[in-house]
């Protein structure tokens, strides 16, 4: 405990890198998931083929292998070295984006057929149909799974310590290497910080879920912010389907 009180600034610096990687990776993954997931719902065969290839390839390759590839292989291929932080966000985002695209595709397809037919009857353009009718409904459906995936991403950021970025994991490993404290303390402190970051992320996603449901007129029962602390019957739990 004394050790942690003295050295916490370094842990916080590491945690900050972890948070940046999580947010950066999530942002990239979100854009990819939305674009590729939507492509997967189109009639056009070519668009669907692009979506399938992207998801199968980047879901099939392990995140750490992708990270090694963007960090070490890509420079050899192109002759340019990427900033390590950018290489890490690229690998994490590409990987998570593939999982996310599947969720987006499934959620859009799960919007009741009659809703889509109504927009066609009203002669809406594809763009208006997506923005005003399909996406708001699909969004509420996607959020719980996105929440689980962001936790997975946050955990996956630990791999950047292997390619030399100073994240929370690397801070703990460095303390251990310099024998600043016993092994148990240095790693347990890092694990607790990861746990806390995960809890904050879970809470944020629950707030988003409530907003999305309220916009659709589905007001959650038992209001008040305290209700957020109780796990919902269906919704964000940690982990979940990959």
């Amino acid at each position: 405990m004394d050790f942690f009180v003295q050295r916490y600034p370094l842990y916080l610096e590491g945690a900050w890198v972890t948070i940046q990687l999580t947010l950066g990776g999530a942002a990239l993954a979100f854009v990819l998931a939305m674009v590729v997931g939507t492509l997967g719902t189109l009639q056009n065969r070519f668009a669907r083929a692009v979506a399938t290839v992207y998801t199968e390839v980047f879901r099939g390759i392990a995140a750490l292998v992708l990270l090694f590839w963007t960090t070490y292989s890509l420079p050899q291929l192109t002759g340019y070295e990427l900033d390590p932080m950018f290489a890490a966000i690229l690998a994490l985002g590409l990987n998570l984006g593939a999982y996310g695209a599947e969720v987006v595709r499934a959620s859009i397809n799960a919007v009741p057929r009659a809703q889509v037919e109504a927009t066609i009857a009203l002669n809406m353009t594809w763009w208006r149909r997506m923005r005003l009718v399909v996406l708001p409904q699909a969004w509420a459906q996607m959020l719980p799974t996105f929440g689980n995936q962001v936790i997975e991403l946050m955990k996956a950021t630990a791999i950047v310590s292997i390619v030399g970025l100073t994240d929370l994991t690397k801070v703990a490993q460095d303390f251990r290497a310099s024998a600043a404290a016993d092994t148990f303390t240095v790693f347990f402190a890092a694990l607790v910080l990861y746990f806390l970051i995960a809890q904050v992320l879970i809470l944020l996603v629950r707030i988003l879920e409530r907003r999305a449901n309220r916009r659709l007129g589905r007001v959650p029962e038992g209001g008040g912010l305290l209700a957020l602390l109780r796990p919902p019957s269906i919704g964000t739990t940690t982990g979940g389907a990959r």
């Binding site: 955990k155 996956a156 292997i162 990861y194 746990f195």
Partner: peptide
């Protein structure tokens, strides 16, 4: 706790 902390760590 096990589930929300990284496997690598």
């Amino acid at each position: 706790f096990v589930r929300t902390t990284p496997l690598l760590v």
